[in-house]
Design a protein around this nucleic acid. Sequence first.
DNA 1: CTAAGTATTGAATAATTTATTCTAAATTAG
DNA 2: CTAATTTAGAATAAATTATTCAATACTTAG
Lengths: 278, 278
Amino acid sequence: MMCLLKIRGMLEQMSVIERKLADFILDNANLLRDYSSQQLADAVGTSQSSVVKFCQKLGYKGYPDLKLAVSEAVITASTLNRDSPELNPVQSDLFTLVEQLQFSLHSHLRGILDVNDEKLLLDAANSVNQADKILISGFGASNIVAQDLQFRLLQLGKLAILHSDPSLVVQMASTLNSNSVMLLISESGQEPDLLKLARYATHKNIPLISLTSYKTNALSMAATTALYALSGDENERINPILVQLAQQHLCHILYLLLCQRHNVEHQLKTPAEIDDLL
Amino acid sequence: MMCLLKIRGMLEQMSVIERKLADFILDNANLLRDYSSQQLADAVGTSQSSVVKFCQKLGYKGYPDLKLAVSEAVITASTLNRDSPELNPVQSDLFTLVEQLQFSLHSHLRGILDVNDEKLLLDAANSVNQADKILISGFGASNIVAQDLQFRLLQLGKLAILHSDPSLVVQMASTLNSNSVMLLISESGQEPDLLKLARYATHKNIPLISLTSYKTNALSMAATTALYALSGDENERINPILVQLAQQHLCHILYLLLCQRHNVEHQLKTPAEIDDLL
DNA sequence: CTAAGTATTGAATAATTTATTCTAAATTAG
DNA sequence: CTAATTTAGAATAAATTATTCAATACTTAG
């Protein structure tokens, strides 16, 4: 990492040729990757052996050693710069797009433990773990999340039920009791059908976990355990994606918590494992 | 940059010797700096030429090229780790869990543009953009991804069709023609039902986009445009989640690309906007 | 100012490292 | 079981890197 600084520091006590080499390397550190000692010599107008001797004088074993050190310096510098993704005009549109998406995602997910108290998450995991069955519901993008969660719970041997038809979900809900859990997912927390379910849960004393965006809303108010998925990206395209992914992320955390405490015999029923049994 | 992930992702399709090499490199990435191809061969118990061929197979020019890439990965990782909050022993298990999940996710998604050529992504976006209808299919976890994509395409006014029943999907496929697009999602790329669809697509000259894990497989071979979602986290719980999220991420990128080029009148039919119209 | 000593340079060459070729073995497909 | 393809390694070619050495320049002491 100190490589370039080291070279710069020794500039003064160098001979003419050495200095030319040093200048070239400092100016083209990022290109050195693709230069052989001979090519570097040619570029600077000197001999290959002088290049090697230059390297050794700087304390490196030889040319490849210097080259590696320079590359590392370049990488370190660019990695450090990259954390706040500034728009590189050379880079393509696509690159920028992906960069922006990933950056937003990263910063959104980071906050998830700030918004959801550790205790709440553990409570939620406990409820689900002890439940005889879990009714999951969500519409629109939240339905995707719901299915994701169902898929994972089923793999753990937990009976997770779900339907995209609101009236059937109500029918399903009637099979629940206070040993079950209802888990309702909604961005707004205002979905009428989900609120109906929530009222039913309250009435029947069924534990209710809500997963909504971060604001007080009818659904989270009714919940035994209220989880929140952050939203708020300024880009109107990206925001819905982020909300959904934040919801999924919470579900995945829940799933991983369940993995930790679930008895071994049911673990990891991957399709492949199930196939083996059949 | 994603060199190590790339290697890990290809572990499964490697021969014994290749695998030994890969394992050694993954275990000793930080030591590779000081190994020549011959030394590496000795350490692993193979021939120098096999080392070189291994490098070339992975897409590198030769051994020095791989070595440099690995060094870069090591540097990048250690630089990133220095930034990301290191594991505080006081912090709870939950915190560690979330941290690990987020870190893996972050590093996985970063590599997506390394594995998928820009041109391929644009090709895929173009095909979908011009298609009169898009048949999407995927089973298991990939079905979640498929539904996610369907949801977003429908919001753009693109007719995306999908069904979880394989035999119905085949019926649906019969409504496609060469102006349509088929988009098949599978981790393994071996799902028999999807391969059947792929053959049908080839036969009927329907453009086929595949989305599989990074390795050559029957499905990607048959595809007009093959996209890849990296896999390879060492944790058996986390890996399936990462694979799925990588697939979703690719779909989201595709969606955002489509947003850019789609005509305005159809844009962003959110449930709320649709409600307003009714 | 000169001559001896020292440092610098590059051509030639040695040594090492990397890449390719080709054959034999192994695996796979038919 | 045979043919075809793939894989591995020995031999070798090619390339890159390091050293030697002779020539030149530069320094300094006389």
